[in-house]
Simulated scan of single mutants.
Amino acid sequence: MRRPWMLIPLVLFILLLVLFLKALNDKKTQQDLAIDPSTLPSALIDKPFPDFSLPSVEEGGPLLTQADLLGQPALVNVWGTWCVACRVEHPVLNRLADQGVIIHGVNYKDNTEDARQWLKEFHDPYQLNISDADGRLGLDLGVYGAPETFLIDAEGVIRYKFVGVVDERVWETQLGPRYQALVDEGGAP
């Protein structure tokens, strides 16, 4: 004959299982658990782009500083030749640049000569391209990896951060409208 107290662990297990399954089916719980990697928080939103003094990727190019980014709204795209996703987004950045979108690059933790060759082969959408070989600027920006794209206003204040590949959908739904609003605020680039 079985003793009833031996069934207590089984009853508790079933009760916990039912509660767990109910929680998973609860819409609010699903929303709380959902993580969208493109919306990683940034402490720099509404703050000036970090100060820096770094060389240009362009051979013989000038030393670039935060002041070089001022004057018009722009995308600041963190990229690297080692980044597979950067290769995927690069044709979109070229199309945007051809349409007049101002894009600056931060070549992150990369060999500058490799970056020059890559841009020669795949075309260069960047008006300015900062060589951040040691990753210090990336660290100051809170970069998790590449690609990451920041939207700055004409005063160099970071207004938005997107983590991941900029494709047509991302441009049309997230970056493009925000970029256009900044352009409309301060005049055409």
Score class of each variant (00 low, 15 high):
Asp68Gly: 06
Leu44Gln: 05
Pro48Gly: 04
Ala43Ile: 10
Pro48Trp: 12
Val76Thr: 02
Asp68Ser: 07
Ser42Phe: 09
Leu63Ile: 14
Val57Lys: 04
Val92Pro: 00
Ile45Phe: 10
Val78Tyr: 02
Pro55Ile: 04
Asn77Arg: 10
Thr81Pro: 01
Trp79Val: 04
Pro55Ala: 01
Ala67Thr: 12
Gly100Cys: 09
His90Glu: 10
Gln99Ala: 15
Ala97Gly: 05
Trp79Pro: 01
Cys83Gln: 12
Leu75Tyr: 05
Glu89His: 06
Leu69Thr: 03
Ala43Glu: 14
Phe49His: 12
His90Gly: 03
Cys86Tyr: 12
Ala74Asp: 05
Gly61Ser: 11
Thr39Gly: 03
Ser38Tyr: 00
Lys47Pro: 09
Ser56Phe: 01
Asp46Pro: 02
Leu40Asn: 09
Pro48Asn: 07
Asp36Gly: 03
Leu93Tyr: 01
Val57Gln: 08
Phe52Glu: 04
Val57Ser: 06
Gln66Arg: 15
Leu63Asn: 10
Leu70Cys: 05
Pro55Val: 05
Ser38Met: 02
Ile45Pro: 10
Cys86Thr: 03
Pro50Gln: 06
Arg87Pro: 00
Val101Met: 04
Leu63Ser: 13
Val84Glu: 15
Val57Trp: 09
Asn77Ser: 14
Leu70Tyr: 04
Leu70Thr: 14
Leu70Glu: 09
Leu96Gln: 10
Ala74Glu: 10
Leu75Met: 13
Cys86Ser: 13
Cys86Gly: 09
Arg87His: 14
Pro50Glu: 07
Ala67Tyr: 04
Val92Ala: 13
Cys86Asn: 02
Glu58Tyr: 03
Ser56Gly: 07
Ser56Arg: 05
Ser38Phe: 00
Leu63Gln: 13
Gln99Cys: 04
Cys86His: 13
Asn94Gln: 11
Asp46Glu: 12
Leu69Trp: 10
Gly61Cys: 08
Val84Ser: 14
Pro55Thr: 03
Val101Pro: 01
Pro41Glu: 11
Thr39Asn: 11
His90Leu: 02
Glu59His: 09
Ala97Thr: 06
Asp36Ala: 08
Leu64Thr: 02
Pro73Arg: 02
Pro73Gln: 01
Ala74Arg: 10
Ala74Thr: 09
Arg95Asn: 09
Asp36Ile: 02
Trp82Asp: 12
Leu54Cys: 02
Val84Pro: 10
Pro50Asn: 11
Pro50Gly: 09
Thr39Ile: 08
Gln66Glu: 12
Gln99Phe: 00
Gln99Ser: 15
Ser56Pro: 07
Cys83Val: 05
Pro48Leu: 08
